[in-house]
Amino acid sequence: MKKRILAAAAMLLCLPLGACEGKNQPARELTVFNLCEYMDPKAIEMFTLETGITIKYEEALTAEDMYTKYKAGGIDYDLLCTCDYMVRRLIAEGEVQPVDFSSFEYGKNIGQRYWDYATAYDPGNKYSLPYFWGTVGILYDTTKVHGPIDSWDVLFNGEYSGEIIMQNSMMDTYIVALKYLGYSLNTTDEAEIRAAQDLLVAQKPDVSAYLVDEARDEVVAGNATMAVVYSGEAYLGREYNPNLDYVIPKEGTELWIDSWLVTKNCKDPDAAKQFLDFLCREDVAQMNFEYIYYSTPNEAVLNGLSDEERADEALAPDPDSCQNSEICLQSDAATTELLNELWKELRGN
């Protein structure tokens, strides 16, 4: 989902630059654990310059990797940035501490809408601060489609047989079918899941390929007409090929949010809150937005966008287009096992 390997090494090189400030104050330090390539390195330098608090910065490739490393307990992390269902899991396991976000100076920059979305995995918004978010939708080549694309239907009605790229990842494939059938993507009803399976099996001959990272590139290169992709990928795709467009189908889709958490063993909760507040500040949020180009929940940044950017569903989806969408919370073990089995069947079909 968020594979940003390349800049990881570059970022590590930048770290020592900001590390020798604030000699007179007692040395304060935060250990921050973020997803790869998920913050402008300049923001970290800036924070240390302004506050004298040193940041030890670490990155993980996936939320699962982060969880494993955090749980291993070798390093005492103070702050974590991870994805929605992992936030829910960490809260349930008592690994994080509550934070009063209303005390934040810049907390108001995060729009109410995103706090509301976040209640799906953090009821009452007690623990997590939304950082970036996005959707799953259809990236398509406007020169190759006939008629408007606004529904998952185009993936299943056979009209674009052989021109479709689906995601080669279990959940990202099933959510499409579940939403198209009008079910919740968090369903645990076996009949609904099997209906989605039948739909996907019937669709397979029409699918050109199941890909992950290359899904976007295949549409950019003109090898496929449309692909199911994450909104961040779609935005980048349009940078390469202006004929592409991204749509959130009207049946709804998966909505994902990455959030910040303060760990239960955080050595300096005040410094941690100071850092989170800093991330909400307009100039810092702007910097990170320009570095990452995922949808930001920061309204101060959103207000500064051009009209064209605001109209871009890959960058700033409006509330209406997200109306039927849900956050994927990862179902119980039995459902996951069923999905794993069906996914193998689908791939082997």
């Binding site: 397979k204 390929a209 890909l211």
Partner: peptide, 14 residues
């Protein structure tokens, strides 16, 4: 194979 050919290795990996 574009994820359409599932070999025994793919299953084990999964």
């Amino acid at each position: 194979g574009g994820g359409k050919i599932q070999l025994i290795g793919n299953i084990i990996e999964q």
